[in-house]
Nucleic acid binder design. Structure first.
Lengths: 155, 155
DNA sequence: CAGAATAATGCATAAATATGCATTTATTTG
DNA sequence: CAAATAAATGCATATTTATGCATTATTCTG
């Protein structure tokens, strides 16, 4: 069961990469991401995300979240690749997530995290083979650790 | 009794000068301009005018008629990025342009094309790794293919 | 001009979305 | 830990929007 934050994040991606013209369609797309949600929940999510509607060619109206969603997606994909390649272990203590990398690779990971601009990340510090990731106030360290573990393909 | 053209002109003005969050509200505003119309008519008018919804401060969604030029520009930039990232091959047959993408990425490209609202594109159909782009009557398929190739950075 | 064809509109209702209320889940507190 | 509090969610339905079909109005044609 995805958390609300995770679900809304996925919604943002889906809207950026699909022409979603109805909430039912969005529910279907979420289900494909193994996220179950009802129309009521989706309606509220869209409201909270500040969704708008735009016209696509053919004239139908689709949902959109303003603010360069596609960029975010691209960076997320890039981040996933980098994490998948270089992160070998994830640990967490309170609001600090420790990412272990091969020697000399920490800065690559830190850079990708910085450019991803994750709301959940307050900042990063890179050593030689370790990246300290500080979770933002709105995100619990363990949740962030789990998120980064998944992006790293570690679970 | 205002003509359709006149009524739609007034609607455009009303949307520009008021935060109209429902069609019923719009009907009331029209009545104040001595224009009678039912919800069905207003719904159709908004559709024909290519209305969208935007968020105003306070978070409510209101109707708006977009100003095409700047939107077009923004989406073109977005389109260029998406095509550059995901399109690996462009083919053309008569008025159909075929875009080849990595598996699973076709819908991303199709969505971006939809949003770009190119006059030269009549519509798109996305498979798994292929997007079929139908050129509009006013554009030759090979011209569109070349245009999309350039946007994709393929030549 | 009358009749045919086309466009516009309203009625009724289907479809889509928002929301009140209750329940469930998550978080906080002692 | 249990209880209290807050947040999230679903159910049911109210509200809003879209649309099928029939009617009306307008335009076109001979």
């Amino acid at each position: 069961m995805a958390s609300k934050r995770q679900r809304q994040h996925v919604i943002t991606q889906l809207l950026a990469n699909n022409s979603v013209s109805s909430q039912e369609q969005l529910i279907t797309l979420l289900k494909e991401e193994d996220i179950e949600a009802t129309q009521a929940t989706v309606s509220r999510d869209l409201d909270e995300l500040g969704s708008v509607t735009v016209r696509v060619s053919g004239g139908i109206m689709v949902y959109a979240i303003p603010e360069l969603p596609s960029d975010h997606y691209v960076h997320q994909d890039h981040l996933k690749r980098v994490l998948g390649e270089w992160v070998v272990k994830v640990g967490v203590s309170r609001n600090i997530v420790m990412l272990q990398t091969p020697p000399g690779s920490a800065h690559v990971v830190a850079s990708a995290l910085d450019r991803a601009g994750l709301e959940t990340v307050l900042g990063t510090v890179a050593g030689d083979d370790t990246v300290m990731v500080v979770a933002s106030e709105t995100c619990d360290g363990s949740v962030l650790a789990e998120s980064l573990s998944q992006l790293s393909g570690l679970e």
